[in-house]
Each structure stands twice: as structure tokens, then as C-alpha cells.
């Protein structure tokens, strides 16, 4: 009970103090807002990148065209050889007549051109559709397949995949660096805000010490103040993130320019992300104020 009384008093004092040092509090809150906006964007981007990578992993297929010179034995042996490659997940064979039929169904022009082809005349090639386990090693896997006897050509959208992976990685690293730099800057500002509060309440603190308030009771209001600053700073980024992402999702119809890049559904993802942003705000505020209390509050 005593703990809750001290906590209640600390919360009351912390709110008073935020109001008393309003300009510095506002500076801290503004800095937290900027930090958390970047954090929120990073969370949204990295979760979507993760999602896109997963989708790509599921959708991306290496198409290996079997040479028309290969006999039936070579074609069958190729399946085993491809399956032996360590990064290969699943191998599916497609007969060239099956491909012809599918193409004829897709387009009338194809149908007119292909309907007269018999087995001998069909210039299409048997193909193996190969799924990989690790998308980042797709180039090596494709090369290994291409080197097999009986494989003519291998296609997997090589340029695009490599570029996408590079862009995602750069975006992820840049956002992590920006977040760390901003978190440090925010903590520095919070330390200074709390330092000012400590100085403005010097008399109060000295009386508290004299009358026998515990160190915990003396320190708590300042730590709570840091947490309040963090919480207040997280409100705008969270609102911006929830409405911004929902609007973006609706505007793009759930995908980002192409069908390959599908956005994560806003619910419940965005609410979990909001909780993380609020949590980070409070944590940064708490760490900043704890540091100031350790440094400037001699109790």
C-alpha cells in the first residue's frame, strides 16, 4: 500500500514538473516524437520487408529448361540431380505438351499458332520448376542447376531479386542506424530535462532527505517524469502510424506498385506495432531519467 501511495505521489509530482519546465519538456517530447516517427516507420518497413521476403520465398521459382536433345533417361535423372542440390526445397516437372496446353488456354493468339503443333513439331522445352529454401542463395543454386548436363537455360528473375534484396537490406540498416542515433539524442535531452527538474526541486529534495524519505521515494518522481515524457512523445507517432498505414494500405489496395510486393494487413499488425512504439517511448524516457537521477541526484 505504501508503495502505491509513493507511486501516486510520484505520478502527481511528475505531471506537475512536466508543466513547470514546460519548454524543456516540450523540447524532449518533440525529440521523442521525431525518434518514434522514425522507429514507427522502421517497424512498418521492416515488418513488410520480412513479409515480402516470405512471399518471395514462397513464390520465387527457378525455371530450368531441359535441352530438347536430352533423352528420357537424362530428363528423369535431372530431377534427382536437382533434388541433390542442398538449397533446393521442391522440384516439379512440367512436360512441354502440358506447357503448350496452358499457353493455348491463356491467349487466343497462342491457341491459333500452337493448335497445329504435334509432339514432334512442338519447339517448347520440358521444364523443371524449382523452389529454394534460402532466397539469398538463389543465384548459386540457379548456377548449379544450369551446370547440370541436359539443362539448356535457367531463369529466375535474377537481376530483380538481387536488387530487391539489396534495397531491403540497405533500408533496414539505414533505419536501424537512424533510430540508434535519435534514441541517443533523445536520451541526452531527457537527461537535461530531468537535470533541470532536479535543480528546480533542490529544496524539496533536501527536505525529503531530512524528514527520512527513502531514496526510492526521492528518485521515483524523476523516473516517472521521464516515462511520462516518453509516453506523451509516443502519442503523435502512434496516431500517425495507425492512420498513415491504414490509408496507405487502402490507397495502394494492399500491394506496393506490383503484385509481388504485398503489404501486411493493417489489423492487428499496426496495433501491435503501436504498442511497441509506446513501449520504446516509455523505455527511452525511463532510461534517460534514470541516468540523470544517477548522475545528478546525490541521495
Amino acid at each position: 500500500m505504501k508503495f502505491f501511495r509513493i507511486l501516486g505521489r510520484s505520478i502527481r509530482d511528475a505531471f506537475k514538473s512536466v508543466g513547470r519546465n514546460f519548454s524543456l519538456s516540450l523540447a524532449s517530447i518533440s525529440c521523442i516524437i521525431i525518434t518514434l516517427v522514425i522507429v514507427a516507420m522502421s517497424i512498418v518497413v521492416s515488418y513488410n520487408v520480412e513479409n515480402i521476403s516470405n512471399v518471395l520465398r514462397e513464390d520465387l521459382t527457378i525455371v530450368a529448361f531441359v535441352s530438347n536433345d536430352a533423352d528420357e533417361f537424362v530428363v528423369k535423372k535431372l530431377k534427382l540431380d536437382i533434388e541433390d542440390i542442398s538449397n533446393v526445397d521442391k522440384v516439379t516437372f512440367k512436360d512441354k505438351s502440358e506447357i503448350k496446353n496452358e499457353m493455348m488456354k491463356e491467349d487466343e493468339a497462342f491457341e491459333n499458332a500452337m493448335k497445329t503443333w504435334d509432339e514432334e513439331e512442338n519447339p517448347l522445352q520440358h521444364t523443371y520448376l524449382v523452389k529454394v529454401k534460402d532466397i539469398e542463395e538463389i543465384t548459386e543454386t540457379a548456377t548449379a542447376i544450369k551446370n547440370l548436363d541436359g539443362i539448356d537455360v535457367v531463369k529466375y528473375g535474377e537481376g530483380m531479386v538481387d536488387q530487391l534484396i539489396t534495397v531491403f537490406k540497405v533500408a533496414e540498416r539505414a533505419s536501424i542506424i537512424a533510430v540508434i542515433a535519435l534514441v541517443l539524442m533523445t536520451m541526452f535531452l531527457i537527461v537535461n530535462t530531468i537535470k533541470l527538474t532536479i535543480f528546480s526541486r533542490k529544496r524539496e529534495i533536501s527536505i525529503m532527505r531530512l524528514v527520512g524519505a527513502s531514496n526510492f521515494a526521492i528518485k521515483l518522481p524523476f523516473v516517472v517524469e521521464g516515462m511520462i515524457l516518453g509516453f506523451l512523445g509516443s502519442i503523435l507517432p502512434v496516431i500517425g502510424m495507425i492512420y498513415g498505414y491504414k490509408t496507405l494500405y487502402t490507397y495502394f489496395g494492399g500491394k506496393f506498385f506490383t503484385d509481388i510486393i504485398k503489404l501486411v494487413r493493417p489489423e492487428p499488425f499496426i496495433y501491435y506495432a503501436a504498442l511497441i512504439v509506446v513501449g520504446i517511448g516509455i523505455l527511452v524516457g525511463m532510461l534517460g531519467s534514470s541516468r540523470a537521477v544517477r548522475k545528478y541526484l546525490k541521495v
Binding site: 500500500m1 505504501k2 508503495f3 501511495r5 509513493i6 505521489r9 529544496r203 524539496e204 533536501s206 527536505i207 525529503m208 524528514v211 527520512g212 524519505a213 527513502s214 521515494a217
Partner: peptide
């Protein structure tokens, strides 16, 4: 004296007990 200038007589005295967590 070391009183809190923004607190009245009652609050100044009560502060000593609030600080140690009394009901």
C-alpha cells in the same frame, strides 16, 4: 526555515509525512 514557498502552512507540514508515504 527551508519551507516550500508554493505550499501553504498545512502543506508544508504535511509534506514531511507525505514524503515518507503515510496515509
Amino acid at each position: 526555515y527551508r519551507l516550500l514557498p508554493k505550499s501553504n502552512v498545512y502543506e508544508n507540514v504535511a509534506f514531511a509525512l507525505e514524503a515518507i508515504g503515510l496515509k
